[in-house]
Design a protein around this nucleic acid. Structure first.
Length: 271
DNA sequence: AAGATCAGCAACCGCCTGACC
DNA sequence: TGGTCAGGCGGTTGCTGATCT
């Protein structure tokens, strides 16, 4: 098997399992004060009997202040489907385009949906007794490989594609419906400026290191604060979601639905 | 009311990659 | 140039609460 991380294999006791509120508090306050420089050193510095990987995971999936909790909105679901279509199981890349959601959360969500759909299909197949040659199940096998494209290439690219994204007005956040569903990379640099300005305003206070999450959180919250999100909805992602429906219909919809309608999940591609 | 099943979520495991020496 | 290490990622497991029978 793979090499065991030194931080996880040391003789010293390393706790596993669920994190206690005290541990969360220790980790969160440590990162709030000092930021993240080296995960492997954080357990010791924060007084935690955890390995660095575990700390990182806990922070990324649960303690990060910019994380949203709760159910995925319809818009988010649609975007996940579209992004999964484009990117496959690259959960981190999908998560990078869904501010406030961790890759783990998206992965769990997707897998739960997969299980549900698979079960439904099996039940339907068992009920109908005879399979059709062009069933969705078969269609999966002939599914073309996901096209390689970057849903977030750059604002210039958006503009070239007829977009009107304005980085300066809404921190580069993109909106589908009411939800801020993605953040333009240009906003990252923007957020970095904000951070530096804040550091200058409060000498002696060391800001946490800049991360994608920081930038996303900064720009997303700013976008909400200015309520200027709609101005940045260039239709790019909306179009992408629409396009995803089109793709799914093209590949997977073969008149299965009585009403001729197709939902994201009825139409989604099994990976 | 109690056991079985399901669904959602948190966390671990194993592997890969890039930086560094 | 090869070895070591840390960070990161996707896959998987296991726990827990909700729902069903």
């Amino acid at each position: 098997m793979g090499r065991v991380h030194p931080c996880c294999s040391e003789e010293k006791k390393v706790r596993k399992g669920l994190w206690s509120p005290e541990e969360d508090e220790r980790l969160a306050s440590h990162i709030a004060r000092f930021g993240v420089s080296c995960w492997s050193s954080i357990p010791e510095l924060a007084g935690l009997q955890r390995c660095g990987k575990s700390c990182r995971l806990r922070w990324m999936n649960y303690l990060r202040p910019d994380l949203k909790r709760g159910r995925f909105s319809q818009q988010e679901e649609g975007l996940i489907v579209a992004l999964h279509k484009a990117l496959g199981n690259s959960w981190s890349q999908i998560a990078a385009r869904l501010p406030g959601r961790s890759d783990n959360e998206i992965k769990n969500f997707w897998n739960a949906r997969m299980r549900k759909k698979l079960r439904q299909k099996e039940a339907a197949a068992a009920g109908s007794n005879r399979g059709r040659n062009n069933s969705a199940e078969d269609g999966r096998k002939t599914k073309p490989a996901p096209s390689v494209f970057d849903p977030f290439p750059s604002c210039q690219d958006h503009a070239a594609a007829g977009s009107s994204c304005d980085d300066s007005s809404a921190a580069g956040s993109f909106v589908v419906g009411d939800a801020v569903v993605a953040t333009c990379p240009a906003a990252v640099a923007d957020a970095e400026d904000d951070r530096n300005a804040a550091a200058a305003a409060e000498p002696g206070v060391t800001p946490p290191p800049m991360t994608t999450a920081t930038a996303t959180a900064t720009s997303t919250s700013r976008a909400c604060a200015t309520d200027a999100r709609a101005s940045c909805d260039d239709g790019f992602l909306t179009a992408m979601v629409d396009d995803a429906s089109f793709l799914f219909e093209d590949f997977y919809l073969h008149g299965d639905n009585d009403d001729g309608q197709i939902s994201f999940w009825d139409a989604h591609a099994f990976s």
